Simulated scan of single mutants.
Amino acid sequence: MARIIGLTGGIASGKSTMAKFFRDKGAAVLNVDAIAHHLSKPRRVLYKIYVQHFGEDILQPDGTLDRRAIGQKVFADKNERQWLNEHTHPILEHVMRQQIACMQRKNFPVIILDVPLLFEAGWDKMTEENCLVFVDEAVQLERLMRRNGYTEAEAQGRIAAQMPLTEKKQRADTFIDNNGSLEDSFSQAEKLWKEWTHAGIS
């Protein structure tokens, strides 16, 4: 039976890069953001929930969701963020559990749950072990502004909306310190992969 590992980290921590590393090693990677994006397409369940709640001013001219407009509403108001989590998390958990069951029927040594809000959503209950990818907050802020084109206030709002790094460190079982070089991060990930798959253990 495949081991189920939770992979989490603050926004712009480099978690996606580590997820790709593990996928290339042979893991099945379930990316909750990708699942949410799929369910947010026109006429799908999350799309309908968003439009019903926020109205059509969150739609782009082609009828798709304006994700940045939604983000601005959600990260500016904790009540909106709470509403969003209460209405989307049960749907996403249901889909993730379905996909985990599907992957368990296949010959994957490890199933990675790539989830930014792993602890916040309580989805660590679905995993056997949880790995935290982290960077210092100053690095995180700079990367987020550069990657997404956010203002400093927008970037800080998104960082503040997540569980503090100190608390995530207390709840995680293993870590990848991504403050250094990519080669160093991959070296840490390789060691974890060997532990998870018992590779090289006599």
Rank of each mutant, 00 (worst) to 15 (best):
R3C: 15
L7I: 07
I11C: 09
I11A: 06
I11H: 04
S13T: 07
G14W: 04
K15C: 09
M18H: 02
M18C: 05
A19S: 15
F21L: 05
D24N: 09
K25Y: 09
G26K: 02
L30V: 14
I35F: 04
A36T: 04
H37W: 09
V45P: 01
V45S: 02
V45D: 04
Y47F: 14
I49E: 05
Y50K: 13
Q52M: 13
G55E: 00
D57Q: 04
Q60V: 00
D62A: 02
G63I: 13
G63T: 07
G63R: 03
L65H: 08
R68C: 11
R68D: 13
A69T: 13
I70W: 02
G71E: 00
D77Q: 05
K78P: 13
R81T: 08
R81P: 02
Q82F: 12
T88L: 03
H89F: 10
P90S: 06
L92Y: 04
E93P: 00
V95R: 04
R97W: 06
A101S: 06
R105N: 10
N107A: 10
F108P: 00
F108D: 02
P109N: 01
V110E: 03
I111L: 10
L113A: 07
L117E: 07
A121W: 01
G122V: 08
W123E: 04
W123Q: 12
W123C: 08
D124Q: 15
D124T: 14
K125F: 06
M126N: 09
M126W: 05
M126L: 14
E129I: 14
N130D: 14
V133M: 02
F134E: 07
F134S: 11
V139D: 11
V139I: 15
L141P: 09
L141Y: 07
L141R: 03
E142G: 13
M145D: 06
R147W: 12
N148S: 15
G149R: 02
A155E: 06
A161C: 01
P164T: 01
K169F: 03
K169G: 11
A172R: 01
D173P: 02
T174Y: 05
F175L: 05
N178M: 05
F186V: 11
S187Q: 10
A189L: 11
W193S: 12
S202W: 08
